[in-house]
Each structure stands twice: as structure tokens, then as C-alpha cells.
Design a protein around this nucleic acid. Sequence first.
DNA 1: TATGAAATTCCCTAAAC
DNA 2: GTTTAGGGAATTTCATA
Lengths: 164, 164
Amino acid sequence: MAATPPILDEFDHKLLELLQRDADTTLSVLGDAVGLSASAVQRRLTRYRKSGLLRQVAVLDPAQLGNLTLAAVLVTLERESAKKHTAFHARMRAAPEVQQCYVLAGDWDYLVILATTSIAHCREVAERLFYDEGNIKRYDTRFVFDTVKLGLQLPTRPPPRRRK
Amino acid sequence: MAATPPILDEFDHKLLELLQRDADTTLSVLGDAVGLSASAVQRRLTRYRKSGLLRQVAVLDPAQLGNLTLAAVLVTLERESAKKHTAFHARMRAAPEVQQCYVLAGDWDYLVILATTSIAHCREVAERLFYDEGNIKRYDTRFVFDTVKLGLQLPTRPPPRRRK
DNA sequence: TATGAAATTCCCTAAAC
DNA sequence: GTTTAGGGAATTTCATA
């Protein structure tokens, strides 16, 4: 069961926006920014973390890592039971080379972002994940030449109305 | 100019792997995990941060946010000068709805991940980013039904050899 | 129930070695 | 690289609206 959808107030929206940009900000700085005491901010962060809404991760700069091969892979499964999809999901989540995996609308079932250390490594992983398993109908690998922007920032509320 | 590529030792690889999974780990816990004192770990983290290799961000769970519309957009520009691409890059980096933007090999120039609050919002953003500008040849929007896996974990070294 | 301020604990940071 | 010492931040307690 999914946790009950949290109701976010104005403080939450602002805090989550700031944290998504820099998770190192101190509680007192966050408090000053949103107009709350450090204690109040701390309690909210604890709540986010306990509910699983928020986690903190380190993001590396791909440009500073040698031997990095990124690829976007489009995947379509054979028409099968939902069981097969569940197994596919588990496989994606378990593979360390799978950065992201999305269920898509349209003629491709999945978009998978792979992070590997070489083209050979990428091929090996793709064959293991998308070929050896019998229920994949087709997959298409698009190599990434360059990363223009990298983040996971999500909007927590509708954008402000813009004048026409 | 890019910074000179850092040479990473075994400690660095382990630390970066741990931090990409949980950036909240304390210095002493990290030290215990890799066999180093907390101070030594602290100096390394400072080095990563100063070089721009590492930054810390909060990641939100998309499943817990109402009104979230994710989309993968494939984009191809008109055959134009590199200038146009530079302008496109700047536009992608400046737009808060653009989560990620990759330069692709193949028949599509770019893959753009959009995070918006509704289909209407997504359409508005896509038209602003990919339609109003004259140098876009075509773009194809694939809506995301579900997020199976979400992260930005990168490998910092080749994988261990696996037995056949 | 959530707040802000004070007290405590713990961690980060910068020394010295 | 380690150990040490000091300041600062995170966390808890408590009184309050």
C-alpha cells in the first residue's frame, strides 16, 4: 500500500525546492529562507525522510569521470502477463548499471538510462538485461554523446500563472 | 577549460559509491566502511566538492507527489550552425522543467526529460521550448506512465570481471 | 498539534603530528 | 595518513499558543 498522499503547505514547497537544489543547506539557513525556526525545519525534514518522500544522494559530474558510457535504451516486451513486467521491473531495480527506468506511453514500453564504463560493458549489460531474457520483443540503444543538463528536480506544485 | 581529470584511488571509488547511494552517511561511518579515519574522509569530500565532481541533492519520490507529469521528449534540430545548439543547450539548462538533457547518437539529436505538473503544463512547456523556437525540426513527446527506478548513480571504475 | 528557544549531543572542521 | 581539540550544526527537551 502506498502511504497516504502528504498535504504540503507553503513551507513544505519552499523547503523541498531548496533541498532539491542543494541538500547541504543548514537548518538555520533553510529556516531563514522560509521564515521558520531551525527546529521546525528539522521536524519537517524528519517527516519527509520517514515517509520516504525525501532522500539525499550525491551526484557526480559525468564530464569529470573518464571511461563513462551513457545510453538511452528503448524497450518493448512481448505481449505477456503482468507477471513478466513485474519481473522486468525487479531486474531493472537490481541492476546497478540501470540509472533510471520509466514506463512509457506509445510504441515503446520502457525507457532505460544505462550508465556503464565502456561500449563493451554497455553491450554486455544490454545483452544481459534485454536479450538473454526471452520476453523482450525489441530494444533500441541510443548512445549519449554529451550531457547538457543533469538533475532529478520535481515540481511540488503548479507553476505560477504567467501573463499572456 | 575542464579541470584536470582526477585520479581516483580505491578509497575514492568506495566513498563515491557509498555517497551516491546515501549522501547522509556520517564521516566516521564512511571511514569505518572504507578503512580510513573520519578526517581523511572529510579531506577527500572537500576535494570532490571543490573540484565540482560531487554535489549533494535531495531526491523526491514521484509516487508521493500528486499532479506530476513526466515526459521523455526526443528532439532534432534543423541542420544549423553550432551556435544554434549552444543556444538550445542554454535554454535547456535554464528551464526548471527540464530535468535532464542528453545529446544522442542516431536519428534524434536530443533526449529531454521534462517534469511538469499537468498535461497542460507539459504541453505549454514543450511548445515554449521546442516549438516557438524556429530551429527545431521535429520533436516527439512520450509520456511517462510510471517510474520503475530513479537515480543518477554513475560507475567510477570498470566492473569486476565475472566468471563465464 | 505545531511552534520557537534553550540545552545537550554529536558531527564537521581545522589544527598539530 | 592519524589523533586531537574546538566550534557549529543537528537533535532533544520543554514551555507555549
